[in-house]
Design a protein around this nucleic acid. Structure first.
Length: 500
RNA sequence: GGCGCCAUCGUCUAGUCUGGUUUAGGACACAGCCCUCUCAAGGCUGCGACACGGGUUCGAAUCCCGUUGGCGCUACCA
């Protein structure tokens, strides 16, 4: 098509449902990736033609937050600043980006007016109740449930009759009675449907609000959207939108329909089968990079099935034509693995930064600026961290003064014959150790083990539990050095007196 | 019901368009082994799939038809 890369303009157009759904996030991501890959523009548009305005602010705030967190910040779209609640500004020159605001501006009315002279649309005076009844009748007779075209060819007299009775009308678009409606999907190829399957549909409701398909088509056109990348639940809408473009006499954008993301039960992702919003994943301690990477792989892959993508590698390698056609299931286990992978690769300083809220909650950050110490503790446990949220539990015994002794560990490693003597001996060794660092400590302890003719475990295990309160942890000597002589000795003596 | 979309290991997928290079490759999960002071991480091995039935062809996971199944749409919702 166009050779001008700047011509690529894509949009993510959610309706305000409270938060960014994981499936929506995937759609947003693919749009973002496609835009960046092609030097284009990623736009956020809110499809709120049917919602009340009350919850809009919080939705906007939440979706903006989620999009930013995921690293898919829109280039254009509505913007709210926390400092000015209720004030929605536009970023970009194609606003407003809220359909409710566009409606107030008269954009859809104007588009409709331009359509009237063509004769391709007409007023429909049927009431919703009539429509419903007729639809049910048709279905019960085994006929198509679509609109029967009753108002399509009303005479002038009939129209006047309706008007004089003050009956409200909606605007319908005339759809072809025969032939096929077809479009080329970038990832599925040609998608056709018999024209007669699409009956005259409403584009403007009797309350003056545009229907979804009309608003969508008008806005995509006005915002110069070049590619529409969305879920495949919109496939049948596409034929309708193409009809609208046809009536408007403007070219339609390119379309790419993504397969859906389902829950582990194979059904639509729902709270029943796990977390559904980006916010929830953030709050569970996932890294944004991990979620983004994972999401990218539901429905898209490289030729070599690459799993982990660094930095801008995703943008570089993303390719719409390599997208799948079949729906995928969101697998939390694989996300967990990926999250661990990202955590192991991450700089401990950033880990501490990202985990700040949980560190703080757990009381691991104090006012003595112990953050460097926390970072070092994270470094020691890094390979074991599964989520940001789990960090405090992993490092608290390294950072806090007081520790909790795990009952099972005490039972298994301390309350055994001979442990007391071993610990006392080791205390002696530690008191005499010239410096309290890994090499010296390790040598001294191993010498002791050999001299006593014990298995290493007979010494290592009790010391570990005495000092940390648990059986799991970093390498013993790394842990000892980190804790320092004073804490180590204090904890060991406590253990000797109370726990052996 | 009608229409549309989809169909490779339990899951994400490569391979399908351009049939042979495939005893169908990778990743997650699972099992075992190695490493090892614990837990992890890491390494190795194993388990495990072309939904079914016809056709076309010397040859089909790949092309065609049908069946079955899943999902979606069928609104003056988006």
């Amino acid at each position: 098509m166009s050779t001008d890369p700047a011509a690529v303009r894509v949009r993510f157009a959610p309706s305000p449902t409270g938060f960014l759904h994981i499936g929506g996030a995937r759609t947003a991501l693919y749009n973002y990736l496609y835009a960046k890959k092609n030097g284009g523009v990623f736009i956020l548009r809110i499809e709120d033609t049917d919602k009340d305005r009350s919850s809009l602010d919080s939705f906007l705030e939440s979706i903006t937050e989620s999009l930013n967190w995921l690293g898919t910040t829109p280039d254009e779209g509505p913007v709210v600043t926390p400092r000015e609640p209720g004030v929605i500004k536009d970023k970009g020159g194609f606003g407003p980006y809220l359909q409710s605001a566009r409606q107030e501006k008269g954009i859809y009315k104007e588009a409709l007016d331009r359509l009237v002279p063509s004769g391709g649309i007409y007023k429909c005076y049927c009431t919703p109740e009539d429509l419903k009844q007729r639809r049910e009748e048709a279905v019960s007779k085994g006929l198509e449930p679509g609109y029967d075209g009753r108002c399509r060819d009303l005479t002038q007299k009939e129209k006047e009759e309706f008007e004089s009775r003050g009956i409200k009308y909606a605007w319908r678009i005339k759809t072809p009675d025969e032939g096929v409606l077809s479009f080329d999907d970038m990832i599925r190829g040609k998608i056709e449907v018999e024209a007669r399957m699409v009956s005259d549909f409403v584009i403007m409701k009797s309350d003056g609000m545009p229907t979804y398909n009309f608003a969508c088509a008008v806005d995509d056109h006005l915002m110069k959207i070049s590619h529409v990348i969305r879920g495949d639940d919109h496939i049948s809408n596409t034929h309708k939108q193409m009809l609208i473009y046809g009536a408007m006499g403007v070219p339609a954008p390119e379309y790419a329909h993504l397969p859906q993301v389902h829950g582990t039960d194979g059904k639509k992702l729902s709270k029943r089968t796990g977390a559904v919003s980006v916010e929830e994943y953030r709050d569970m301690g996932y890294l944004p990079g991990a979620l983004r990477n994972y999401l990218a792989l539901i429905g898209w892959s490289t030729e070599d099935s690459q799993q982990i993508f660094k930095e801008d590698e995703l943008v570089k390698k993303f390719d719409l034509s390599r997208c799948n056609t079949s729906s995928g299931i969101f697998d939390p286990q694989k996300l967990d693995w990926m999250n661990g992978k990202y955590i192991r690769e991450e700089d401990p300083r950033n880990l501490a930064k990202m985990a700040f809220r949980w560190l703080n909650e757990a009381g691991l950050i104090d006012d003595t600026d112990n953050i460097p110490r926390v970072i070092d503790a994270i470094k020691l446990e890094q390979e074991k961290i599964e989520s940001l949220k789990g960090i405090p539990e992993l490092i608290d015994f390294l950072v806090k003064d007081d520790i909790k002794y795990d009952e099972k560990s005490v039972e298994k490693r301390l309350k055994k014959d001979g442990v007391k003597k071993v610990l006392e001996d080791v205390v002696g060794i530690f008191e005499k150790a010239p410096d309290f660092t890994v090499p010296g400590l390790e040598e001294a302890v191993r010498q002791y083990v050999e001299k006593e003719g014990l298995g290493a475990g007979r010494v290592f295990h009790p010391v570990r539990v005495a000092v940390s309160g648990r059986m799991k942890g970093p390498g013993l000597f790394e842990m000892l050095e980190f804790l320092g002589r004073e804490k180590v000795l204090g904890r060991m003596k406590y253990a000797i007196d109370h726990l052996t």
